[in-house]
Computed example of a mutant assay.
Amino acid sequence: MAAFRNRRSDELARLADEHMQHDLRQQDRDTLKSAASKVSLWTGVGSAVGIGLGLYMAFRLRSSRKAFFDVFRAQQKPTQVVFADGRTESLPDITPLLKPTTFGDFATYFFASAGGLFLGGELGFLGGATSASNSIAVDPESRKRIETAFRRFRADVLRKEADALDGGESVLDKMF
């Protein structure tokens, strides 16, 4: 769905660029670019660390699963059960069902690395956003100009959306 919204993102990028050029000084624009690069760096590092930890956890899980199977296979298992009335029932061998499979290994590595990517990326983004916010908040005047420019940008975006909806455009076209 997001791939089909290029037209909307181009329009918003153009509007944001206009506000950056008219409402902010060069120092403010440099501060925003520095803050954006901090968020990007932290998110990338967090994602990489998350994938690494996810793969490490998957490796540990797979090796412990294999060790459990090897121990289970080596143990003597009962082959039949004798009931009090003398009746004997044989027990099925479940050893082949517990054997680690290639599909199980793939799923373990895939889901553990995906989970690590998500968790690491989100934590990295949170750390980067905090770091970027702190770097913007260093200069109170610059921060005020940036906040004012952002409020004006949001107001323009909402005005354009309201004008488009009042103009009779389809709501579904605006949403998608």
Rank of each mutant, 00 (worst) to 15 (best):
L91M: 09
F153D: 12
K160T: 00
R7W: 13
S9N: 08
D166A: 14
P92V: 04
A35S: 06
L172D: 11
G124A: 04
A84R: 00
L32D: 03
T31A: 15
L55M: 10
F150K: 14
L119T: 13
P100R: 05
D163N: 08
L165A: 13
G120A: 02
G46D: 05
R154D: 09
F111Q: 11
D163L: 11
L12M: 10
D28K: 04
L98C: 01
A2Q: 11
F59C: 04
T79H: 08
G127H: 06
S47K: 00
R25N: 07
G127T: 06
T101N: 07
F59V: 05
E161P: 00
T88F: 01
S34P: 00
D93R: 10
G54L: 07
E18Y: 09
G86D: 00
A2H: 11
R65D: 10
D93M: 10
D163T: 05
D10G: 10
G168A: 03
A36N: 09
F68V: 01
G52V: 10
S142I: 05
T95H: 08
D173A: 07
L172W: 13
T43A: 03
V71P: 01
R87S: 13
I146P: 10
R145C: 13
T130L: 11
D166S: 11
Q21A: 15
A155E: 14
G116F: 05
L15W: 14
G46V: 02
W42T: 01
V171T: 13
E18L: 10
L126K: 07
E18K: 13
S37R: 12
L119K: 04
R159C: 00
V82R: 15
R25M: 12
R151W: 14
R151M: 12
S37G: 04
A107G: 01
R5D: 12
T43I: 01
A114N: 06
D28L: 05
R159A: 05
V71W: 13
S135N: 00
S34G: 06
V157I: 11
D23Y: 09
G54W: 06
S34T: 04
L61Y: 13
L12F: 12
L119C: 08
V49N: 01
P96G: 04
G54H: 07
G86E: 00
D30I: 07
A2I: 14
W42F: 07
D139G: 03
S133I: 01
M20A: 09
A74M: 08
E147A: 15
G127D: 06
G46N: 03
A16M: 15
K174S: 10
S47I: 01
T102W: 03
L15H: 15
P100N: 03
A137M: 04
L123E: 02
A36Y: 11
T79F: 04
I146N: 13
G46F: 06
